[in-house]
Nucleic acid binder design. Structure first.
Lengths: 130, 130
DNA sequence: CTGACATCTGAGCGAGTGCTCATACGTTCA
DNA sequence: TGAACGTATGAGCACTCGCTCAGATGTCAG
């Protein structure tokens, strides 16, 4: 456990070692970290936010969805495939059309919570990167 | 408003036009969409998830944080800069060291909500992309 | 001031992302 | 069966991301 690491950072911990040990155990498990990041990454694109937001109001076919958010049919289909793989949306075929719905209402909650953060952050002045 | 669009998708809406009109008004505003996506994108990376998760348990200096999550000091600093610009973390200098904290407890709520989705999705079998 | 330490920052590279274009697939209708 | 329609998919390209490396900045001890 205490093997020789790259030592890129300082050699020892500056805070209480006991607290560090406690922290190590309290951290989210690696597998959950990756799954969590994967989910958030899916929400981290304006196009997919629009897709999911539109679907949060009810079922839509690919064509209508594409027009609604101003995206090409192909691009919409590609995004839906990704969202479907992540189990964020679900598809249902009806004739030549395919209808999509949200597969998990948790997403709506995440959106609402995220919006709350965004709105609160909008009040304070945003810092610049450079 | 009803100008000639690229017409890449089908020419007309398939669902009730009235419902489409209602949908257009109910969608999240473009500026909010971008801000929301920007926030979620920040959470959509395993490294940043680890950083924020570690900080959710309390203040940490860059050095300790880097060691805790097994990342180089430089990479950690770069990520912290990004998170600071998004107002997700806040810094406090103490001598040569700089301590970081979460700047918004909403993030913790988002994590918890996200984990709930992840855990639920883990039960069902995941679909493949191809 | 000088050296040591903690952190920050810019440049640059390999990997990944989101779009378009062309085309294939599945369904309906004549 | 064949054409039309809605959707899905693969290839390719411009762009972005996250890391490392080298060096700058800021702080403290002697």
């Amino acid at each position: 456990m205490a093997a020789a690491e790259p030592a890129e950072a300082c050699d020892v911990f500056h805070i209480d070692p006991a607290r560090v040990a406690g922290l190590r155990g309290a951290l989210i498990a690696p597998s959950s970290v990756d799954a969590l990041a994967e989910t958030f990454r899916a929400l981290g694109d304006p196009t997919r936010v629009r897709v999911l937001d539109a679907l949060s109001h009810g079922e839509l076919c690919v064509c209508d969805l594409a027009q609604l958010i101003g995206l090409s049919q192909s691009a919409t289909s590609h995004q839906l495939r990704l969202l479907r793989a992540l189990r964020l949306v679900r598809s249902r075929r009806a004739g030549r059309m395919v209808f999509y719905t949200l597969d998990d209402r948790h997403i709506v909650t995440l959106f609402r919570q995220g919006l709350r953060h965004v709105e609160e952050a909008a009040v304070k002045p945003r810092r610049r990167l450079a």
